[in-house]
Design a protein around this nucleic acid. Structure first.
Length: 329
DNA sequence: AATGTCATCAACCGCGGTGTT
DNA sequence: GAACACCGCGGTTGATGACAT
């Protein structure tokens, strides 16, 4: 009964990923998608378990990832969201485009925690440390006084629902404060959002030009039961920003600083692979520069061999600088 | 220069929720 | 409905580099 076992785990490789493994994984996902992580390693010829492949893809190879430290803006978002959501890293990550739960979690543990403590704020409760000591004592005594039996469970459930609504309201306020209107009915996860087709992004970028006078524009990342509609709604709503604001938004959010090698610079001399990271020193071109629509035309019309399609539906995914730079495809 | 300590982050592990048989 | 596997999440670990002694 039930499903087939995940993987036998015998003879599977562990530890850091090699360039070859990365190539295999990217090539496979580009060609076939990642419908089933369990089957992926065998089909792609990787000696890894599906879980490991999924993690590598989501946290490192996925094309829509940002690199580098979190900006101050993002850091503040993380702090605000953590105050509302606690350690629900995937939820927090879902509100920071291009960031992963792992990345945010690491950043929280290594940077933000210390920062908050230095400021005299308890990173767990987000309250002043001195005040926290007192309230903890009070809470402790309160806890011991309240019996937790079946009668209280229904009340607990109702309390939780009320609390969730309050959290949602507070979160909306936080996001509003940051001038981003995000529908958080359930909160979507980045993982639920399929990768965008470049056509969608590029069309949106150009349409942003056409709507420069649209004063009612705002960013609206809405939840959707249909994964495909969530991505399109995101891009299309962002694109409805006036051109200047669209550029500003991209700057502020540091959305995928897409770059690629020019055809003359594809030699591997320009690329280093160190400690599992690709470094590209070659000349690059910023895809998000909406003032240079010729570059978009270049991509959309396949004038440049730097973008190699394989004929599948995934062939035109947008890749980050590292993936393209390393000539993975 | 050698050694120890700290900081960072990619990757692993285990668990719970959900879907499948 | 039970048994089982898959997936995703959060906590933790371990390798590595940076810095201090």
């Amino acid at each position: 009964m039930g499903r087939q076992p995940c993987c036998d785990k015998v003879g599977l490789k562990k530890g850091p990923w090699t360039v070859e493994e990365d190539k295999k994984l990217i090539n496979f996902i580009l060609t076939n998608g990642h419908c089933c992580w369990r089957a992926l390693p065998k089909l792609s010829g990787l000696l890894r378990c599906g879980k490991s492949c999924r993690l590598r893809w989501i946290n490192y190879l996925r094309p829509d990832l940002k690199r580098g430290l979190l900006s101050e803006y993002e850091e503040q978002m993380v702090i605000d969201l953590h105050a509302q959501l606690g350690n629900r890293w995937s939820k927090i990550a879902s509100h920071l485009p291009g960031r992963t739960d792992n990345e945010i979690k690491n950043h929280w543990n290594t940077h933000i925690k210390k920062k908050l403590r230095k400021m005299g704020i308890d990173p767990l409760t987000h309250k002043p440390l001195s005040e926290q000591e007192g309230s903890e004592q009070a809470q402790g005594s309160k806890k011991s006084l309240v019996p937790h039996d079946d009668k209280n469970r229904k009340q607990d459930h109702e309390d939780q629902q009320t609390k969730d609504k309050q959290e949602q309201h507070q979160l909306e306020q936080v996001l509003d404060k940051n001038k981003i209107s995000i529908s958080i009915d359930d909160g979507f996860c980045i993982d639920e959002v399929p990768l965008l087709n470049p056509q969608e992004i590029f069309m949106d970028a150009s349409s942003a030009h056409h709507h420069k006078n649209d004063d009612n524009a705002n960013i609206n990342i809405s939840n959707s039961t249909s994964p495909s509609s969530s991505s399109s709604s995101t891009s299309s709503c962002i694109s409805s920003l006036p051109g200047d604001e669209f550029s500003k938004f991209l700057d502020e959010m540091e959305i995928i600083d897409l770059k690629w090698l020019s055809s003359n610079d594809s030699s591997e001399d320009n690329i280093n692979y160190k400690d599992g990271k690709y470094n590209n020193n070659a000349d690059t071109m910023n895809l998000w520069d909406i003032n240079d629509l010729s570059s978009l035309d270049l991509i959309m019309n396949d004038h440049d061999d730097s973008f190699v399609g394989n004929g599948s539906g995934c062939s035109r995914m947008v890749f980050d600088q590292d993936s393209w730079a390393f000539d993975l495809l």
